[in-house]
């Protein structure tokens, strides 16, 4: 093997400062004024690490894929400005993880990727599911929450976060991983990257027929807090009493 062919899964997400609100009887996000960004986990970690592997001669190609309608193109172009050889947009809109994973798996099947990388979760739907589903659909091994990734030939060394610690794993490709903090340092696109991204191929692919296993019926905002009760800094016994008797948490 001369180097890996890598697919990075990219989704768009509302900028983290967005004040979330809903419209149409709370069935839809109010998108007015929302700035869309690349979901941070794939922007900061998956994509940057894939690019580093290519720069180090350990990967031959880095492709980006998104399942989204035409309105996701600015976000995928932003990702291309960071790097990557080409992007694929599968022309469908869904927030059912199985539907999304099926589209990506179907596309990836014929392309023979060695390594498929996702973010650890999307910051809008917080499913942390898509990568594992892709792995199952492609019958590949899967490592979640990877914070360090080293590659040598067709072997991968990955550190992953487990409940209360860290585990060091090894596996040969093909493989799917989900990526998180620690894997790489975020990059900022430069002018050359932005110019280059304009001419990089962005293929639009028709989705395959697939059902949505779940549907979001409606949204709800969290209840408002009753208001803060201030306790004087000298009265920590009083705070402890309140936590015990009123809040009943200690």
């Amino acid at each position: 093997m001369t180097g890996m062919k890598i697919l990075v899964c990219i989704t768009k997400a509302p900028d983290t400062t967005t004040k979330i609100a809903f419209v149409d009887n709370d069935t839809r996000l109010n998108e007015a004024g929302v700035q869309w960004i690349i979901n941070p986990y794939e922007e900061w970690y998956a994509l940057v690490r894939a690019l580093e592997l290519k720069e180090a001669g350990l990967a031959t190609a880095v492709h980006l894929v998104t399942v989204g309608k035409a309105d996701t193109e600015p976000v995928i172009r932003k990702a291309l400005a960071l790097g990557g050889d080409e992007a694929i947009r599968i022309d469908a809109d869904s927030n059912d993880s199985f539907y999304i994973a099926s589209q990506i798996a179907h596309f990836a099947r014929t392309e023979n990727y060695d390594l498929i990388m996702t973010g650890k979760e999307s910051i809008d739907y917080n499913n942390a599911s898509t990568g594992a589903m892709i792995a199952e659909l492609l019958d590949m091994p899967y490592i979640t929450h990877v914070s360090k990734l080293e590659v040598s030939g067709n072997q991968v060394q990955a550190n992953r976060e487990i409940e209360g610690g860290e585990e060091s794993n090894s596996c040969s490709v093909p493989l799917v991983i989900s990526c998180q903090k620690g894997m790489a340092e975020a990059r900022i696109p430069n002018m050359r990257g932005i110019m280059a991204a304009r001419t990089k191929p962005l293929k639009v692919v028709t989705p395959v027929e697939e059902s949505e296993l779940t549907s979001t019926i409606s949204y709800e905002m969290p209840p408002q807090k009753a208001g803060v009760k201030m306790v004087a800094p000298e009265q920590m016994d009083e705070l402890v009493r309140l936590l015990h008797e009123e809040a009943k948490v200690i």
Binding site: F98, M133, E136, L137, E161
Partner: peptide, 20 residues
């Protein structure tokens, strides 16, 4: 973290809808 690796795989395997 364990379930995040496994539950979606079970969901895809059985084609059974998942709420994570």
């Amino acid at each position: 973290n364990t379930a995040k690796a496994v539950a979606p795989r079970v969901s895809a395997r059985l084609k059974a809808g998942l709420v994570a």
